[in-house]
């Protein structure tokens, strides 16, 4: 076990998979000679060369489609889209081809592509560099969506995503690449379906994913320390498909649910988890589920306004206290 950074975990997964299989290759803007905006491909250009570590032109839909086409022949591209804000441009190929080709060919073709891309609100990047797009991707049948919240998950999910025969979108976070965490030394794979209980508790479940897992964990500490509320934190690191069983299991234990998301509320993870609770374990509830979401605005540039647009730990604590009638 070693403590490494998020980007190092990604780099290690890339490196191992490329060393194992000559048909694994990676591509994206500035990932080769420049070493990658977030260093996820650092050193790989020198090791594997320009044909397998490809600096692409700024043609998101084009190179995503190219990756998908190559996957029809058994290649396993790992495509980095510099920011989810730019992934909008690749949606045609991702949704119209990757997500549907296995189905519409009657099972003849597969599109085992991995697309990694960071989203979220970083620091004063403004409206066009702060999108949170997971909700868009997770609504598409035929596409898997995962979102790692730690170096351990980043490594294990990328490893599985490369080997899986389905197209996988990995939603990373701009602010997490330098985060440190323990990663086992031996090779491992994380399931592409499921969730993880990142803190056990009995009074309320806080559902988070990606960065909001940390808000949930810190809120849980405060709730336990100051308010005698024992919160469970569930990390929904697989967004599509969502872990219905895991959601049901936790809510059946705590009977209360708060979903915390960095994105705007409409048609999002919170809405979807609420619907699952409604459908699968409504009668387990002691209180109506609550969402803690971003404001329904583009992200402003001004730092104070930017912070006000997305939730924080205190919003989570407040939502739980309100649920318990403590405010």
């Amino acid at each position: 076990m070693a403590e490494i950074m998020f980007w190092e975990a990604l780099q290690r997964a890339h490196d191992e998979e490329m060393a194992r299989d000559p048909l694994v290759y990676c591509m994206g803007e500035d990932i080769g000679v420049a070493g990658g905006t977030y260093k996820a491909t650092k050193g790989l250009y020198e090791k594997y060369g320009a044909e397998r570590v490809i600096d692409t032109p700024i043609s998101e839909n084009g190179f995503t489609g190219l990756g998908i086409g190559s996957s029809f022949l058994g290649c396993r591209p790992i495509i980095e889209i510099m920011s989810v804000n730019f992934a909008w441009l690749a949606m045609d190929q991702l949704f119209n081809t990757a997500a549907k080709v296995h189905y519409m060919s009657g099972g003849q073709l597969m599109a085992p592509v991995v697309v990694r891309s960071p989203g979220g609100t970083a620091h004063m990047l403004g409206a066009q560099h702060s999108a949170r797009m997971e909700k868009v991707f997770m609504g598409i049948a035929g596409l898997r969506v995962v979102t790692p919240s730690s170096p351990r998950q980043a490594y294990g999910l990328l490893k599985s995503a490369v080997r899986c025969n389905d197209p996988v979108f990995i939603n990373e976070h701009e602010m997490m690449y330098n985060m440190k965490g323990d990663v086992p030394d031996e090779e491992y794979f994380l399931p592409l379906e499921g969730s993880e209980i990142s803190r056990g508790g009995k009074d309320v479940t806080l559902f988070g994913y990606n960065v909001s897992v940390y808000w949930c964990q810190q809120a849980a500490e405060i709730l336990s320390r100051n308010h005698n509320i024992d919160a469970e934190v569930v990390d929904l690191y697989c967004l599509s498909p969502l872990d219905r069983e895991g959601i049901k299991r936790s809510v059946s234990k705590t009977h209360r649910a708060v979903i915390v998301e960095e994105a705007e509320p409409a048609v999002g993870v919170g809405a979807e988890v609420m619907a699952i609770i409604n459908e699968d374990c409504f009668y387990e509830l002691d209180a109506p589920p609550v969402r803690v979401s971003a404001e329904n605005t583009p992200i402003p540039y001004n730092h104070k306004l930017e912070r006000a647009a997305i939730p924080d730990i205190h919003n989570v604590v407040d939502a739980v206290l309100k649920m318990f009638g403590r405010t």
Binding site: L23, I68, C75, T97, L109
Partner: peptide, 25 residues
């Protein structure tokens, strides 16, 4: 025959990708 696609212009990059696959193999 790698398929017929209904999005006008969709196969352009797919074809380049198939060619990339040929090149790699």
């Amino acid at each position: 025959f790698m398929g017929g696609y209904a999005l006008v212009g969709g196969p352009f990059p797919l074809a380049a990708g198939i060619a990339k696959g040929i090149q790699m193999k």
